[in-house]
């Protein structure tokens, strides 16, 4: 079992790195791209014997306490069974 955690900057927070990436993409000639936001992606491997709901609750706490800074970031947790 795996937990996937996405950490993204809150929409109200400026993302200068995303902006710089946006500029680079535009300089390659791609049109119609209105915005780029950069975030983080985590894969957390969990014993298959563990309870899915309890594991998800634990990962939510890990995301809130460690992986994201709630002052500036949001997070989203997905649980995946089997390989990916």
């Amino acid at each position: 079992m795996k937990a996937i955690v996405y950490v993204t900057l809150k929409p109200s927070v400026l993302d200068p790195q995303g902006k710089a990436i946006h500029h680079s993409v535009e300089s390659l000639g791609y049109e119609g791209i209105s915005d780029v936001r950069q975030g983080k992606y985590f894969e957390i491997a969990i014993d298959d014997t563990a309870d899915t709901e309890a594991s998800k609750a634990a990962v939510e706490r890990i995301a809130k306490d460690v992986l994201a800074n709630p002052v500036i970031e949001d997070y989203k947790v997905e649980m995946i069974n089997g390989d990916r």
Partner: peptide, 17 residues
Amino acid sequence: LCEAGLLPGALMRNAGL
């Protein structure tokens, strides 16, 4: 100190990168 919650707010990447 901000990450630890001893001070409020956060420090982000410089606006000019």
